[in-house]
């Protein structure tokens, strides 16, 4: 049996209109309400730096900032972000003029395949803004929402320490005391 491509079904889907403000630029959208912020950025606006790793809130590859806070764009509806300030990796440096965190990731080889990297970098920026780069252990804990299957964690910590000036035995208020506690 041969298949013929069918014309686009004419049923109308609930549409929603809103404006995404990304890296300081407004993008008016009219779309199917199901569109996630991740897919809006990646597929509709062509900002492909934000990555889909799981689409389930379990990996951190899609981390962006909304109103200055790091969040997962895969579990955020695009329509929810009307009038919010969204920041993505595209708003940082360029290849010729890297942002200091991007530069540190490059110097410390804090990535391999590079797929989780934009999310790691956006998360690292969030971490520093939150004041959580006080010690290597604190960085490890608060970067744990970003999975790197290539296993670049050690170099990610080094890159963040480099930018934040983290000392070895620095402050670690928020880190569980050797999680699982000590007897």
């Amino acid at each position: 049996m041969t298949l013929q491509a069918k014309p686009h079904a004419e049923e109308s889907l609930p549409q929603t209109e809103f404006t995404l403000r990304v890296n300081g630029r407004d993008h008016p959208l009219r779309t199917d309400a199901r569109l996630t912020l991740l897919d809006a950025l990646h597929d509709r606006l062509g900002l492909t730096g934000t990555k889909k790793g799981c689409d389930q809130g379990t990996c951190g590859a899609c981390t962006v900032h909304v109103d200055g806070r790091r969040v997962l764009s895969c579990l955020t509806l695009a329509a929810q972000c009307d009038e919010r300030e969204i920041a993505t990796v595209e708003g940082l440096g360029t290849e010729d003029e890297l942002h200091p965190v991007q530069r540190a990731f490059l110097e410390h080889d804090a990535f391999q395949c590079g797929y989780c990297t934009p999310g790691q970098i956006m998360s690292a920026l969030g971490l520093m803004a939150e004041g959580r780069a006080g010690s290597p252990d604190e960085i490890r804990e608060y970067m744990s929402g970003n999975i790197c299957r290539c296993g670049a964690y050690q170099n990610i910590v080094a890159a963040i320490r480099d930018v934040a000036g983290t000392e070895d035995g620095g402050r670690a208020d928020d880190v569980p005391q050797a999680e699982g506690g000590r007897p």
């Binding site: 809130g57 951190g60 981390t63 806070r69 790091r70 969040v71 997962l72 579990l75 955020t76 998360s123 969030g126 971490l127 939150e130 608060y142 744990s144 929402g145 970003n146 928020d174 569980p176 999680e179």
Partner: peptide, 15 residues
């Protein structure tokens, strides 16, 4: 506070 900080990840806790 401890229970909150041990939950999920920062990104999820911001949401």
């Amino acid at each position: 506070r401890e229970a909150l900080l041990r939950s999920a990840s920062v990104q999820l806790r911001n949401m």
